[in-house]
Simulated assay, not measured.
Amino acid sequence: MAAGPYLRPTGFVEAPFGHDGKVARLAGGMCWFSAVEILRRGAEPELLAVSDIEAFLSSCPEAEPVWSNLIGTRPPLSCSGRAFRFDQPQIMGILNVTPDSFSDGGAYEDVTAAAEAGWDMSAAGAALIDIGGESTRPGAEPVWEGDEAARILPVVERLRDQGALISIDTRKAAVMRAALTAGAHLVNDVSALTYDSESAGVVAEAGVPVVLMHAQGDPQTMQQAPAYDHVLLDVYDWLAERIDAAVAAGIERGRIIVDPGIGFGKTLRHNLALINGLSLFHGLGAPLLLGASRKRFIGALSKEAPADRRLAGSLTVLQAGLSQGVQLVRVHDVPESVQALHVWRGLRDAALSPA
């Protein structure tokens, strides 16, 4: 467990004009911040103006790598020769080809329907299609790798032939290997390569990007009284350890994306704290993915609305992520999310193009 300090950007402004030396650009993206919250375990947080950061770093050199991560650009990823950029946020569309996913289980078990849904997401503006063949909702039972691969491979192949960029949502090395061979471009592992001891080797050998997501426990048990000393810092430290483990396994640091794992071993308060503190995770130096679409905490805040009636709440969380520099947002409702992103981008463009 790290001693800190941890740096959380805050005091966001729409544009840097007229604020020379008083603001910094977050992760090479479209957000600028004027202050940093300094967090340490067992101590009260402090608020520091960006204009005072050099003096702070002189007195606390151990914070310099974190600061460098906060203001460093995220280089594009190469996916089969195609560049995937992080200088502006992107949408990842969710395509569950399972009978029991929490939101749309059973809707896309048919290969043709699933492929058409994936193509519709791409046409609507999704930069990536995330295909999953095993539900990881709370209480879900594991799926045999052969069944999981049989569900996803025909869909991967069809979307590959249509030119879509494809992410494979799996914890299993055999499924990763099969999907990558079939044409997937990225691995999204909710266990951050901890579930299967061979998975890190598969990713390293393939040389593909990987999403490392935080989860406390497995899907069967993760919502049974999850607890943290400090949810923001505990999740941050765990992801830092997983980045180091992935690099030690031969995965290039520049190919790693991190996800704080909203809803995976978290209470309502934990989820809200993580969303409010998303900007902290840029200190890890990796692109940041937010996956909160239609999740249970949205229903808990809206009179127990069912999963298919959580669009407005999902878009609210999307906005919270965009305003804190999140580079990738995983969603069910692609057209609506892309529209919200375009409006946010329009507001940013207007602020950066003063009359």
Rank of each mutant, 00 (worst) to 15 (best):
L318Y: 11
F86T: 01
R40P: 01
Q223K: 02
R85M: 07
A55F: 06
P99H: 11
P287G: 14
R255G: 05
V13H: 00
A184E: 00
A24L: 02
P226S: 09
W119T: 10
N276I: 01
L272H: 13
M222V: 10
W67E: 02
G277L: 11
V155L: 05
P45M: 05
L347Q: 12
I257F: 12
G201F: 13
Q88H: 06
A192R: 02
D234M: 10
I168F: 12
F264P: 04
A43L: 02
R40C: 07
V190Q: 08
A63Q: 00
L290Y: 00
T194S: 12
A227P: 09
A2G: 03
N96H: 12
D218R: 15
F84T: 01
S337T: 02
L280S: 04
A3M: 10
L70T: 05
S58I: 15
W144I: 11
G72D: 04
G254I: 05
A249Q: 10
A192P: 12
A184N: 10
L165T: 06
E37H: 01
T194E: 13
H342I: 11
S135G: 07
Y6I: 02
L272A: 07
S323W: 01
A178L: 07
A182P: 06
Y195D: 06
A115W: 03
A225T: 14
A140K: 08
G325I: 03
Y228M: 05
A3I: 12
G106Y: 14
F102S: 13
G183H: 13
G105H: 04
R137T: 06
V235D: 12
T112R: 15
D110V: 13
A286Y: 00
L347M: 14
P16M: 09
A43V: 01
